[in-house]
């Protein structure tokens, strides 16, 4: 039984094969009834728009059915049921479970109590492997993944997408440039681990110092709740904003990605530039998640 819990569990051949599979699906090479006898349980303990809807869309495109809890408040979970018990019960109703939960490691726990495959759709500030896979998929649409320069900007401390992606990029010998406000840097233990794995991680104070040497700029949201007051938030967020001026003179093949939702990190004027790929990235969630569902349900 195959679970997809953390990008750390996946090796490069698996990721490459999954990306290839998603490429085939995106070019309409798939059986629209391949999962017609399957039921997918969506267990979302936290709000989600893109992840939840794209998993539902992926399941529907493959002919399968999705079931979900209407609201957590109206379920047994609000009565104090453990996640372990919820998973035991739900795995009796469905052929696979997609889980989003506020606690880190929740999906790993779920995989230990489930009798069907579990896909992690985000656990707290931890892992979000389907996002990372679609990030890699979007990059390889424009560039070879090997040896490129990737800039990561924004909240790199709490942003789970940044942790998962930097780890995945280390499989491809990319150089990682990190630019973040004080206090929101990539955790030192993670930087140390990446370096131990032979990945070059370079810290920059200003994005202007490195923007012209990047192949990919990955922007993450700076969360307002991390700051003591609105003034300090606006100070920081304005200095980490991607604008058309910032992108003048960059490499012609640069791509700008963002896991969305964005708030002020990317000026809407950037949307019309050829570098902007974040909406395409979001759309790519469907073929990548179709490939993941076929992988765990085959």
């Amino acid at each position: 039984m195959k679970h997809i819990i953390s990008i750390r569990d996946l090796d490069r051949p698996f990721i490459d094969e999954l990306i290839n599979h998603a490429n085939h699906i995106a070019s309409q090479h798939f059986n629209a009834n391949s999962l017609s006898d399957k039921i997918l349980a969506l267990l979302f303990f936290e709000p989600s728009t893109r992840t939840r809807m794209s998993f539902e869309a992926a399941m529907a495109r493959l002919g399968g059915t999705s079931i979900s809890v209407g609201s957590i408040e109206a379920s047994s979970i609000s009565k104090g049921e453990t996640l372990a018990d919820t998973i035991r019960v739900v795995s009796g109703y469905a052929d696979a479970i997609v889980l989003r939960h506020p606690k880190e490691g929740a999906a790993r726990l779920a995989s230990e109590f489930s009798s069907v495959p579990v896909i992690n759709a985000g656990d707290g500030a931890g892992q979000h492997p389907s996002q990372t896979l679609l990030d890699l998929y979007t990059i390889q649409q424009s560039l070879p993944l090997d040896g490129i320069d990737v800039g990561m900007i924004g909240d790199l401390r709490y942003g789970r997408t940044a942790h998962s992606l930097t780890y995945a990029l280390s499989l491809y010998r990319c150089r990682i440039h990190v630019i973040s406000p004080k206090g929101l840097e990539l955790p030192p233990a993670l930087i140390g681990e990446l370096r131990d794995r032979g990945t070059e991680v370079i810290e920059h104070e200003h994005v202007e110092d490195i923007i012209k040497e990047l192949d990919v700029l990955y922007v993450t949201r700076i969360q307002r709740e991390r700051f003591p007051d609105s003034a300090s938030y606006f100070d920081v967020s304005s200095s980490y904003k991607v604008t058309t001026e910032l992108l003048e003179g960059v490499r012609s093949h640069l791509i700008v990605l963002h896991p969305l939702p964005r708030v002020d990190e990317i000026d809407p004027e950037v949307d019309t530039l050829p570098y902007a790929r974040y909406f395409e990235q979001s759309r790519n969630g469907v073929p990548v998640r179709m490939a993941m569902l076929q992988e765990v349900l085959k």
Binding site: S6, K103, E104, R108, Q127, P187, G192
Partner: peptide, 14 residues
């Protein structure tokens, strides 16, 4: 070698 890795949340104790 130099750390303990939480197998649930990936936290590293150094």
């Amino acid at each position: 070698p130099n750390v303990l890795h939480c197998m649930y949340c990936d936290w590293l104790i150094t």
